[in-house]
Simulated scan of single mutants.
Amino acid sequence: MISRSRRLTALLCALTLSGAAALTACSSDTAAGGAKITLGFSAWPGWFPWQVAQEKGLFQKNGVNVDLKYFDSYTDSINALSTGAIDGNSQTLGDTVASVSGGAKLSIVLVNDNSTGNDKVIAREGITSVADLKGKKVAVEQGAVDHYLLLLALQQAKLTEKDITLVPMVTDQAAAAFLSGQVDAVAAFAPFTSKALERTNSKAIATSAEFPGAIPDHLVLGEKVTKEHPKEVQAIVNTWFETLAWIKDNKDAAIDIMAKRGGVSVAEYRSYDSGTSIFTKQQNIDAFTPGVTPQHLNFQAGKIADFMVSVGLTAARPQVDNLFDDTFIKAVP
C-alpha cells in the first residue's frame, strides 16, 4: 500500500540543503512559455480526484498541459516542490507553513478538502480514551500532521507529550507496529488507519473530526508560477471543480479510478467518504476570507505556526500573511 508521510519538517530540511532560490528558478524553467505545468500528488482521498482529471482528459479539455506526477512518498513530493522539480503540489497547510518558515515563496490557490475523521489516534483494547494513554507507547511520525493531531488530543485531555512514550516511526511502519502489538496506540491517516484497525478490538479514541479545520489540504504552487502563468493556474483550478462535477455524476466509475490509485478496495475507499470533506467553491471562498474561527485559513495557519515554535521545529514564527491567493477561486465560472 502507498505511503503519505505528510511531514511538517521535510521541506525545512530540503530548503536547508538546496536553498530557496532553487524553487523559483526550476519552477520557471518547467513552466516556461506555458507549455507544461508539473503537479505532484500522493496518497490521500482528497487528492485522488486529480487522477480522475487526468484519466478523463479534463486538463486537456480546459486547455492546460499538465504533467501529473504521483509520488509513493509524500515526503518526496514536498522535496520535489522545494527544489523546483515540480511546479505545484497537493499538501497540507502544516507542510506549507513549514516551507514558508524555510524561506520558500509559495501560494495556496485552492482548498481540496478538510480532514474530518480520516486522521485518527487508534488504541489497543483496554484503552478507551486519550487520557488512558498516560504512560503508554504511542507510534507516530514526528513532525507530521498526525503528530499535530496527537498533541491536540493530548492537550484536550490535559496531558502533554511528556506523559506518553513517543515511538517515532514513518506512518506505514507505525501502523504495522501497532498491528503487531509493538505499541499501545498509533496516530495515522487513511489509508493506514484501515491497516491499524485490523488489530483485534482496537478503536479510534480521537479523530480529526473533533478538531474542525485543523487539517486542511491544498493545491500549492511556487509564487513565481502563479505570477508568470496565471492562465494555466486558472485552468487547473477550473479543472478541479469540473472534475468534482464529473465525480458527482459518475460516482462508481470515479471511485474505481481513485481506489485503484490508492491501492485499496472499492469498499475501503467508500469508507473514507465521511472522513474527507471536499470543499465547494463557496467553502473555498469562505476559507480564504480572513477571520478568527477554525474555518478560516489565516486562523489555522497562525495556530500551526505557533505549534511549530512550541515543539522546536522553527525558532521564529513563520510569516503567513501573503500565503493565500484567492484570485483563482474567485474567477472560477
Rank of each mutant, 00 (worst) to 15 (best):
F279V: 02
G275S: 04
T243W: 12
S265T: 15
Y70E: 12
T200D: 12
D29Y: 01
V320K: 02
A98S: 15
R261Y: 01
V121F: 04
A32Y: 10
K281L: 14
A144Y: 08
R124E: 09
V266S: 07
A98V: 03
N322T: 09
K136T: 03
V130L: 05
S271I: 01
A31K: 01
Y74P: 00
N89A: 05
G102I: 08
P318T: 04
A235H: 10
L149D: 12
D132L: 01
S107M: 03
T200A: 13
S77L: 11
D95E: 15
V311Q: 14
I108H: 07
T193N: 13
S27Y: 02
A131L: 06
P212L: 08
S28Y: 05
A259M: 02
G222P: 05
A139E: 03
L313A: 10
K251E: 14
A14C: 12
A188T: 15
K36N: 12
E141V: 00
W47M: 13
E210M: 13
T92K: 02
D163K: 05
Q142S: 13
T280N: 08
F178A: 08
L159S: 12
A85K: 13
D249L: 08
I2L: 10
F59P: 09
K195G: 01
Y74C: 03
K36Q: 12
T293R: 08
D132Y: 09
N201A: 14
A21E: 15
D72P: 01
D256H: 02
E210Q: 15
F59K: 08
A139L: 04
S265C: 06
G84W: 10
I37C: 03
S42Y: 12
P216T: 03
I205K: 10
S99G: 15
G34Q: 08
D146K: 07
A253I: 01
V292K: 13
A316M: 01
Q182K: 15
W47H: 14
A245M: 00
F71P: 01
V320W: 02
Q282D: 14
S101D: 02
G291S: 03
D113R: 00
S115L: 10
Q155L: 02
L68E: 09
V311D: 10
P45L: 07
F288C: 10
F71K: 06
S18C: 02
T314V: 14
L149R: 12
E161P: 00
G126C: 06
T128L: 14
G88M: 06
I285A: 12
T116M: 14
S90M: 04
K203E: 06
K251Y: 09
A206T: 07
P49Q: 09
Y70L: 13
